[in-house]
Design a protein around this nucleic acid. Sequence first.
DNA 1: TTACAACAATTGCAAATGCACCTATGGTGT
DNA 2: ACACCATAGGTGCATTTGCAATTGTTGTAA
Lengths: 167, 167
Amino acid sequence: MADRLQLELGDYLPYLINRVGAALVDRFVAEKLSGAGLGIADWRVLVVLSTRGAQRQVDVAEQTSIDVSTLSRLIARMVRNGFVTRERAPHNNREVLVQLTAKGRAVMDRLIPHGRQLETIAVEGLNERELDIVRRSLRQMYGNLTQRPAGDTPQGSVSKRSARKGV
Amino acid sequence: MADRLQLELGDYLPYLINRVGAALVDRFVAEKLSGAGLGIADWRVLVVLSTRGAQRQVDVAEQTSIDVSTLSRLIARMVRNGFVTRERAPHNNREVLVQLTAKGRAVMDRLIPHGRQLETIAVEGLNERELDIVRRSLRQMYGNLTQRPAGDTPQGSVSKRSARKGV
DNA sequence: TTACAACAATTGCAAATGCACCTATGGTGT
DNA sequence: ACACCATAGGTGCATTTGCAATTGTTGTAA
């Protein structure tokens, strides 16, 4: 009888994270991406490519939590729209490397400062020490959550499995 | 020339939040919800109802970041499956009050402890002080992000506009 | 009271999503 | 060399999604 079977939403981290994530997406889509003809998924793909360079689709999928089949079609559209290229990897004929075009790079050069600015708006009122704790805590949480629950894949391979929905 | 036009993903809060959110959803869906025949959206609706009692659909939509039209269909399915009831509000014939059935309550009594446990797993390695800062920071961020950007709706109405995608 | 605006919920419809399956290539062990 | 499994990517198809109406209701101002 100790514990009321409720969740205090204002304290429940999954809820808080979902809300902040949704608010971030809402604002960025409404204020910046729509105008550029992009969706949030496009933005995430472009960020990964612009920050980490050419990638295989499967790796982009892993880093964005977008399903590989969805991503396949998404990249096809982005190729049609001229933001990225998709070409077979040298010396490996089943992999495909996706990378930014000049146009994609240009769009990101314009959008990234806005992305930074959104973060700045979001963290207004927090000091550096708190911000640092938040960042480190989120990284730690991600690690905790992506650890094998018990005896899952006994052998090697650090991660690989992931993404069901886009949260 | 000062700023390289990139985002350090490991430090970029929107990215971190998206990743942690996705990881939380992945695990909870895979480990608990699938088995109960529920999706993440059902869970979010049930949490809101079980924590805050009977609600209008529009308010549930606001609190879950689910679009009202999507929610309308979602609730219809949940009614068919016996988790909630939907009945017109007394003295107001255009509103509908959604609330848990005994079955819905029972499912939540079983799931909520798992929801708590997931949070516990996620925050392993963080101390109370850090946890407190993370919670307060997220609440603050949500507030910062949902403030009117400038001169948006000069008159009344605190919020109302929201949710585009489900993040 | 009679218009008219705001609001809550629903529905039509096209687009997006994700699972299951398929194809093609690469790697491994015998 | 061969069979075999794992991997990367793409497709078919049913379901889900969300925007734009549409319907019905309430509130309010002339």
